[in-house]
């Protein structure tokens, strides 16, 4: 087999480029739309990052993106010098960090648990019931959170009152914001996020289960020594992908849940940029671009480092 491979590689090299293109012309044609898609929607827009270094003139169109006056690092400096810079970075990071710590393992555990259910109808029902919240829009979820946690009439406070505990104004206390954000986020997405793990577990060969059972392994041992190791590459892949958005908190949910009383823990980079860059009149697209670029660079660095660590520690990596 190895011999065959090296032989074909040799012939490949021998063929001139033109002939190779002609030979693979249909395959190349199939690739054209994909290349065009990425060129138009991903790579070309990236040239717009130059806006982060100029002062975009409203009304100057696409041309203005490239021809507006160069201001160097002005927008970055403005952002870095803001008294709120560290608070924003901290809040953004911590919201995602806790979402990861709490939200990442739950779908894995749930997937393992749900695949252990032997009765298929029950398994399917549980799965559907848990991934349905994912399809509720953020606005509705935030409305539900506000209603449930209201100090006057909210179900949570009513329960607390029954136990003799005074109402807590959850939505106005900075110390509660992260917990509410993380727990509600995990509740909403754990069912849906578990689908990919369920699929990975389903992909494990039944022979392996049988072999372990023949060897006398109990359910715990099967999970620990077969299921989890089998889905490890999937876990790592998703973990690295998730790390790639460590600094990208979902704007809508924070925006819908926060208020001035909880800025201390709730104000994140995206909401600040909205107020400073987009919400102003006229909008400061250059500032928004600069902060977006800053975010992307940090995200890329985290992914890069995580990938390197993963490669060294587990021998699994995205690239």
């Amino acid at each position: 087999m190895a011999k065959k491979k090296s032989q074909s590689a040799y012939t490949e090299k021998k063929l001139p480029l033109k002939k190779r293109i002609y030979r693979d012309r249909y395959l190349l044609c199939m690739m054209v739309p994909v290349v065009i898609f990425f060129a138009v929607f991903c790579y070309f827009p990236m040239t717009g990052l130059i806006m982060a270094f100029n002062k975009y003139r409203i009304g100057s169109g696409i041309k203005g993106v490239y021809t507006s006056p160069f201001v160097g690092m002005q927008w970055f400096n403005q952002f870095f010098r803001s008294v709120y810079f560290f608070r924003l970075v901290r809040n953004t990071f911590l919201l995602q960090f806790w979402s990861l710590i709490i939200g990442f393992p739950i779908p894995i555990l749930f997937a393992v648990a749900v695949t252990q259910i032997r009765r298929k109808p029950i398994q399917k029902t549980v799965q559907v019931a848990t991934y349905l919240p994912y399809f509720i829009s953020t606005v509705v979820v935030c409305g539900m959170i506000n209603n449930f946690l209201s100090p006057s009439g909210g179900i949570v406070n009513q329960m607390l009152n029954r136990f003799g505990i005074e109402s807590i104004n959850f939505m106005n206390l900075p110390e509660w914001f992260r917990r509410i954000y993380v727990i509600s986020g995990s509740w909403q997405s754990f069912g849906f996020n578990s689908i990919i793990f369920v699929a990975a577990i389903m992909g494990i060969s039944p022979d392996l289960y049988e072999a372990m059972r023949v060897d006398g392994a109990n359910r715990r041992q099967i999970i620990w020594h077969l299921v989890l190791p089998s889905i490890r590459p999937t876990i790592i892949l998703l973990l690295i992908m998730t790390l790639g958005s460590m600094m990208s908190v979902g704007f809508e949910k924070v925006y819908l849940l926060y208020n001035t009383a909880v800025y201390e823990t709730a104000d994140v980079i995206q909401t600040y940029v909205y107020r400073q860059g987009i919400g102003t009149s006229p909008p400061n697209y250059s500032f928004a671009t600069a902060v977006g670029l800053f975010n992307s660079v940090i995200n890329f660095a985290i992914v890069f480092v995580a990938n390197r660590i993963s490669r060294k520690v587990t021998d699994t990596a995205i690239w």
Partner: peptide, 28 residues
């Protein structure tokens, strides 16, 4: 706002999206 940012109103008469207190559109 983004449409005017492109420099193309594509209309003869335009209702402004804000009051242009910064004279941004005037100067554009």
């Amino acid at each position: 706002t983004p449409r005017l940012s492109t420099g193309q109103a594509n209309a003869d008469i335009v209702l402004l999206p804000d009051q242009d207190t910064n004279q941004t559109y005037i100067k554009s």
